[in-house]
Design a protein around this nucleic acid. Structure first.
Length: 305
RNA sequence: GCCGAGAUAGCUCAGUGGUAGAGCGCGGCCCUGAAAAGGCCGGCGUGGGGGGUCCGAUUCCCUCUCUCGGCA
């Protein structure tokens, strides 16, 4: 039996994934599933460069603006929601086209998520206290005692991961590294195709700088002001632009400075995204040399499908 | 034209008679329930050009070029 096809389009922020995706989706009878940890939030449109309503009419987009920015969202919610959409699309005879730059979300879909061990606020609070009291060396030592494999992989300064690993151990009695090895990916049941957009670094950075500048023209300041008026969730508050503009609102620096920091942080983010996707050998890279070549790029991708 | 200050990393600048650092920037990497987050690693350099003193000059001396102040 022929395996059903799932297509992914990944790459750094600002490279032009969304536009290419729309063109491609029309060609291959697909609907788009966003693979972006920030675009799931409502009222965060300019700051996340969400595609406009007109474009969403051309091709159906899923998981854009589905949750209030005061609410938490995470890989598990994302996995559940997106796989459900996948199944619905198959029933309609459509190809799911995942588009986005959140490496972890991508990986959670393609390679699977280890069995349910949700965040436990109580345990985390306790571990957080221990961290403050006794330092990361202490927590790291405790982790090494129960899970050598995980300890080897986690740096002793990476307290967030140390805490998570200990949390999983305390809740299940099993080392996180053991649970992690039990992941089941999509490759078994589906034909997975992954495409990555990239360009030379300077070109990408110029586009990112421009895009951030553009956000200000579109009304970023007001959007963020409105967002800051409510208590943003831990996750939503992490979007690039929130902290940066908050500092400006609090008169810590000028608007130009806020913009500069936003551009820099976006560049750093893009770099991390590239590191993430580059190591994934399933990615078929498409190099972008000029702006506004969505059609051509979509055609090139289509050839490989 | 004269006087003064300076010329060192991509940028802003430290410092030293034994071939150099810091911050920012930049590059590479890790990542499994916060991921636009979090963590790790890396100086990436014709010390403005030329000459001199010295065992040895980025450092001291001379000279040229350039930049910035001030006076004309």
């Amino acid at each position: 039996m022929l395996k059903r096809k799932i297509v992914f389009l990944v790459g750094p922020t600002g490279i032009g994934k969304s536009k290419v995706a729309i063109t491609l989706a029309k060609k291959i009878n697909a609907e788009i599933i966003s693979c972006d940890s920030m675009q799931v939030y409502r009222r965060m449109n300019i700051i996340t460069s969400k595609v406009g309503l007109a474009e969403r009419k051309e091709v159906k987009h899923h998981l854009l603006g589905i949750i209030d920015p005061t609410k938490e969202y995470n890989v598990a919610s994302y996995r559940k929601a997106s796989l459900a959409i996948c199944n619905r699309l198959f029933k309609k005879g459509k190809i799911p086209l995942f588009v986005g730059g959140t490496g972890l979300y991508y990986s959670i879909i393609v390679d699977g998520l280890f069995p349910e061990v949700p965040e436990d606020k109580l345990i985390r609070a306790k571990l957080g206290k221990l961290l403050k009291l006794k330092g990361n060396a202490y927590l790291y030592k405790r982790l090494s005692q129960v899970d050598t494999v995980a300890a080897k992989r986690i740096h002793f300064n990476d307290s967030r991961r140390i805490i998570r690993a200990l949390e999983v151990y305390l809740k299940t009695g099993k080392p996180i590294s053991e649970l992690q090895s039990g992941r089941v990916g999509l490759g078994k049941d589906y034909e997975v195709k992954v495409f990555g957009l990239n360009s030379d670094r300077q070109f990408l950075y110029d586009k990112i700088d421009q895009r951030v500048g553009q956000m200000f023209n579109l009304g970023l300041i007001n959007e963020v002001r409105r967002l800051l008026a409510c208590k943003l969730s831990r996750t939503a508050a992490c979007a690039i632009g929130i902290q940066e503009l908050d500092g400006y609102f609090k008169n810590q620096y000028s608007l130009d400075e806020a913009k500069r920091i936003m551009q820099r942080n976006s560049r750093h983010y893009a770099k991390r995204q590239l590191t993430w996707f580059r190591k994934d050998k399933r990615v078929k890279w498409i190099n972008i040399k000029k702006t506004e070549v969505f059609n051509e790029t979509a055609k090139r991708i289509n050839k490989f499908l």
